[in-house]
Nucleic acid binder design. Sequence first.
DNA 1: CGAATTTGACCCGCGC
DNA 2: GCGCGGGTCAAATTCG
Length: 190
Amino acid sequence: MEFGQAEESLDSLGLMAQIQTSCSYQPEVPISFCNISGSIVSGKHDLPKFWVNEEVNLSEVRIGNGNTDQISSGKDGSSSWWKSTSTSLERNKMKGRRKMREPRFCFQTRSDIDVLDDGYKWRKYGQKVVKNSLHPRSYYRCTHSNCRVKKRVERLSEDCRMVITTYEGRHNHTPCDDSNSDEQNCISSF
DNA sequence: CGAATTTGACCCGCGC
DNA sequence: GCGCGGGTCAAATTCG
């Protein structure tokens, strides 16, 4: 199965179109998640489930056999993150960051690698040990200028091969050309 | 030597 | 009001 099918499923739910066409996220979207069975990239990953969620409707996400993934938002509405212009004043702008809303979707894969090659370039900006999880959660941001897409990567404590990837925001550019996998093509649709 | 990662500190929201 | 937990920053370190 390809993400294209996932797109169709999401589109049939009226969600994908919204994400693809709207930069101003509509919190009224009633869909909290959807699971699609199949394989993201044959061989590398299996048992993927992914869902689109919106933090107002979904403070936590049930994964597989009752595992709980705490979804809390982290959002700064500030400008380019990699520029070292952050002062204590700038930091004040982070106020209310967790109130920001971004289109977001998660998917769960069984994989030996933490970071899926989705065609975009990511820079790690943090790692945190989270409660109720044996494994640290990693935080990545897209390195493209003016692109504020973030993703979190963590492994399930029950099954260290299960990887939860949460994307937040939408890319405002195309993936770089150094990767040309199917996965890239599919995920880039988001 | 520049880019990427690591990691401890800091900040903020939320529950009690 | 306070403490906890999650998210981000940024200096130090590592890597290519």
